[in-house]
């Protein structure tokens, strides 16, 4: 049994176009299914607007889906109530992108970190200080920092506080939504090391959302690539980075800037493509990637590809239909 599983998870938003305009349907997440095993890191990559954050918010039940379900340890999380829901809230935690916006500026670190412990009755009152000190220690901060306010910390330290808060209830799964994007390069490496270390120490599973492919390759076991609300490729991280199957994955990997010490591998000043990501309100027919795809052929603009199994992974592309496996 999978640890956490999404089944045909869908979120459609109704949006009005302009004042008094027509209502349109934005398919933010469309029939997304995947399984995450215990003790593993599952990453979701894709460009802005591909639905990765909406997906994360549904996985932790901050948003209700329009369809489909999320099974956590065998239970549908949208059916949970009472103590079961409280238990789910304890087991799954989230870290957000912006550590400036996700800490209450008027709360001392001690209050921020002890509040979840009090709500869930995890620790008796006289042990709260010790527990907070222990949490700060586990993310590389010192216990004397608990009496400070968020503005007294740097971005990296604030992200450590957010991580400490997510750890406070001894969760089993942490969803990290772009936890590094707001940080400087030298600080990013500190936080990646911290997450790796916590993963080993507490046997945590991660759902890691990022647009930085180098970090994703470094940190994850399995990777799902999303494009306009759908998974277009899902594979083992090494396989995916070694040989991407979907043309979109290939495009992403090629575009990611890499430090290359071999001289003169600079970008050729070659042809610049004219297409941008289409609007999710006005999706292209057939395969939604076909207007940007360098490998498109006749049927791509009218046949919608299904997610099929190829070479032990899943890919949504007509190119691979003939070598489909059962």
């Amino acid at each position: 049994m999978a640890f956490i599983e999404a089944k045909d998870l869908t979120k459609h938003f109704r949006i009005k176009q302009g004042i008094g305009g027509k209502t349109a349907i934005l398919k933010a997440v469309d029939e997304v299914s995947f399984e995450v095993g215990k003790d593993s890191v599952f990453s979701i990559v894709g460009e802005s607007g591909c639905g990765k954050s909406t997906l994360a918010r549904m996985l932790i039940r901050l948003l209700d889906p329009s369809g489909g379900k999320v099974m956590f340890e065998g239970n549908d999380i949208f059916q949970l109530s009472g103590n079961d829901l409280k238990e789910f809230r304890r087991s799954v935690q989230i870290i957000f992108q912006d550590p400036y916006a996700s800490l209450n500026p008027r709360m001392r670190v001690y209050t921020t970190l002890s509040e979840p412990l009090k709500i869930h009755g995890m620790v008796s009152k006289d042990k709260l200080r010790d527990k907070v000190a222990e949490l700060l220690h586990s993310v590389g901060l010192t216990p004397d920092m608990m009496n400070k306010y968020p503005h007294e910390f740097s971005g990296g330290q604030r992200q450590r506080i957010c991580i400490a808060r997510s750890l406070s209830l001894s969760p089993k799964l942490i969803i990290a939504d772009e936890p590094l994007s707001a940080l400087d390069v030298s600080i990013q490496a500190q936080i990646i090391n911290l997450l790796q270390d916590l993963r080993k120490r507490f046997g945590l599973s991660f759902i890691f959302i990022s647009h930085d492919l180098n970090v994703v390759h470094y940190f994850s076991d399995t990777v799902a690539v999303m494009y306009l609300g759908r998974i277009v490729e899902l594979a083992d991280a090494d396989k995916l980075f070694d040989r991407p199957l979907h043309p979109y994955t290939e495009l992403l990997l090629k575009a990611a800037p890499k430090v290359n010490v071999q001289k003169d591998v600079r970008v050729p000043s070659g042809t610049v493509s004219e297409t941008d990501v289409p609007s999710p309100i006005d999706m292209p027919s057939g395969c939604s990637f076909h207007p940007r795809c360098p490998k498109r052929f006749d049927r791509c603009d009218n046949t919608e590809p299904a997610l099929i199994k190829v070479d032990g992974r899943q890919v949504r592309c007509l190119l691979y239909e003939s070598n489909k496996q059962g």
Partner: peptide, 18 residues
Amino acid sequence: LDVTIQSEILKLIRGLKD
């Protein structure tokens, strides 16, 4: 910008420079 758009802009800047 997203990575794919970023690489287009970098190519464009280099091309214009040349």
